[in-house]
Nucleic acid binder design. Structure first.
Length: 258
DNA sequence: ATGGCTGAGCTACTCAGA
């Protein structure tokens, strides 16, 4: 079972890239963030032609998340979090493995920059509410997968120049602590679990030749409940899509579970 | 080096991203 997370930075502007990527990688489930479109303009038919069902929580212009899946999914929910700004940032679904049922949570966490503004406060409040809701889920002993664009640099190793980001909304200690708090509820950062000292990134800015210079950061993550660790087959950051023409600024992260 | 690029909405230019 191949589950992939990718911030595509507009599903419509990226349609050809996404279709080519699907043909190459053949995910069972593709979790998309920043689709930047309303539900009615989501290219359902294009994905249907490739054999996928689309579940969409869209929004005009900004944000928006979606799940496309080879198999039909149950219990789709677009109201996981109470969002005062009514931004479309979480979609959840149930995924059946052979022996376990996973609650899959696809997220696009607010960026939060610049710090010391209402945008930063929104990110903090959003994370607080998200963690509270996960806490409730965990108490029911569910097998949980949280994946997506967290907009959090977990550790110094996860960015090319930490000094530059230690007071940024992605790298501030206060925000990284939220990530630790989430993990301490009973999760593993799957990439870091399998790659103890490897420095790889999932995002590179469009400007300043960031991609060419490999000035990136690891901000897209898979968190798995401790109960699911035995199901992990592999985790891989696939840099290829970032090297293509007209790329997203993020690249996919690919999880295989049994 | 708080943005040099990119996308949406719209059709000139702002807002947002990280």
């Amino acid at each position: 079972m191949k589950i992939i997370s990718w911030n595509v930075n507009s599903v419509r502007a990226r349609l050809e890239n996404i279709k080519n990527y699907i043909k190459d990688s053949s995910p069972d489930v593709l979790l998309l963030q920043e689709i930047k479109t309303q539900n009615e303009n989501f290219p359902n038919d294009e994905f249907k032609k490739l054999g996928y069902i689309s579940y969409v929580f869209g929004q005009k212009s900004y944000n928006g998340v979606a799940i496309i899946s080879k198999c039909a999914l149950n219990n789709i929910n677009n109201s996981f979090i109470k969002d005062d700004l009514k931004q479309s940032r979480v979609i959840t679904a149930e995924l059946k493995l052979k022996t376990k049922t996973i609650e899959m949570i696809n997220i696009y966490v607010p960026n939060g920059n610049p710090v010391d503004t209402e945008k930063y406060e929104y990110k903090k409040e959003w994370l607080k509410r998200f963690i509270n809701n996960i806490k409730k889920k965990v108490q029911k002993n569910l097998n949980i997968l949280i994946a997506g664009d967290f907009n959090i640099i977990p550790e110094e190793i996860d960015v090319h120049d930490f000094k530059r980001y230690e007071n940024d909304a992605l790298g501030r200690l206060e925000i990284r602590k939220k990530y630790r708090e989430l993990i301490n509820l009973g999760f593993k950062d799957v990439y870091r679990l399998k790659n103890k000292a490897k420095q790889e990134y999932t995002f590179w800015d469009y400007f300043a030749g960031s991609w060419q210079k490999n000035f990136g950061m690891r901000i897209d993550h898979f968190l798995l409940s401790n109960s699911l660790i035995e199901n992990i087959k592999s985790i891989k950051i696939n840099k290829k899509p970032r090297s293509k023409e007209k790329p997203s600024d993020h690249t996919p992260i690919e999880l295989e579970i049994i």
